[in-house]
Design a protein around this nucleic acid. Structure first.
Lengths: 200, 200
DNA sequence: CCAAAGTTAGAACGATTGTTCAAACTTTTC
DNA sequence: GAAAAGTTTGAACAATCGTTCTAACTTTGG
């Protein structure tokens, strides 16, 4: 029952394949990911990609898993930080991270194996955010009855994705104004919360 | 200089090709659009698609143009309606329309010819919305200095896209709660505006 | 009715895709 | 050092893609 262990170069190569896949997704879109393109970027032969990831679906799923593990942890940290909404926004509007997730979501739309994984990550993160917002919104002076936690969470996500997408594509949709407006709104909210918390 | 006119069946066939393309995009994603798949759905031979649309890029651009012409007009109507924000939201959160635009945006990410067109439509619509919000926000009791018009516009768009995307993909991200929350918020805002306008 | 223009069918091209297979090479284990 | 397992290579497969070409067919204008 003593299983032979994988060689040191293998686990490293798996990571290099995932890195290469992410880079291709960010540069040319998920549609440009293929056994050949990934292999070329890492400097190996195309069929070898299938040695490490049996199918291209498995490759996408692995990219999602590695990325979302980091991201779920970071989101938990942000929600527990001193200025939760600001930290959340900073994480959500990170260009690289969001652009990659946008590509993964787009890819998942016609890759059932990916879709299930993306759905699970989305559900987990959203649940975490909504749960935190329940106690957080009142601290920011927002009535959860007037502005529902689920609405705030969906708006944060949608807004961040929209800005990253438009900015990345070079669309002239006043993204700078929107981002500046968001930052003003956030600092005002954080001030309000700081005052309320210190005064209680 | 008397140019021979196209036959009656031609303009009809162009529209049927665009219809088929939209249906394929909604059902299987933009990546499933090809000369063959579109031709099969219309019941003609693949090369004939290229007789009507020289390249697949031209086909996508034509789909975008036809759709956005309707959409820009509808958005202008919504912004001029009795309950502008509600009408805007109803238009933005229309599942079919938004799902199609999401596919077009995704396709544009690696089709330069499409990207320019999508960018122009996005810019035009956003400009229209922001301009309208400048006078509209105060009527809703919102200070444009506190919540920037560009931020509201981007949030509306991002929120709608996010909800349609998650709902279409079947992701369990509390979309029903968010949509219900949005409707409550909207009706409250419309009430506030109606009171302010009638009282002035 | 006939020539010109618009439309369609069919075959075919080169390129790319995911994946498989058998054979070779390399490292580990005993 | 030999056997076994892990790794890599190279060739090849069937399928799909966008697109082009030529020849045929159909409608229109005069």
């Amino acid at each position: 029952m003593s299983e032979r262990r994988a060689r040191a170069s293998t686990v490293d190569k798996r990571n290099r394949l995932l890195d290469a896949t992410e880079e291709i997704m960010l540069r040319d879109g998920y549609a440009a990911v293929s056994s050949r393109s990934v292999a070329a970027r890492v400097g190996i032969n195309p069929p070898l990609v299938h040695y490490y990831f049996a199918t291209i679906d498995d490759l996408f799923v692995a990219v999602l898993r590695r990325r979302s593990l980091r991201n779920v942890a970071r989101m938990a940290e942000a929600l527990a930080a001193a200025e939760p909404l600001t930290q959340w926004w900073r994480l959500a509007s990170d260009p690289r991270g969001s652009a990659l997730f946008i590509e993964l979501i787009a890819a998942a739309n016609h890759r059932p194996a990916l879709r299930a994984e993306v759905g699970e990550v989305a559900r987990e993160v959203r649940e975490m955010q909504i749960e935190r917002l329940r106690s957080l919104l009142p601290e920011y002076g927002i009535d959860p009855e007037a502005i529902a936690p689920a609405l705030v969470a969906a708006a944060m996500q949608g807004l961040a994705f929209g800005l990253v997408q438009d900015q990345g594509a070079g669309y002239d949709t006043a993204t700078a104004d929107a981002a500046a407006g968001m930052n003003r709104l956030l600092s005002r909210l954080e001030q309000r919360r700081a005052a309320a918390v210190s005064g209680s």
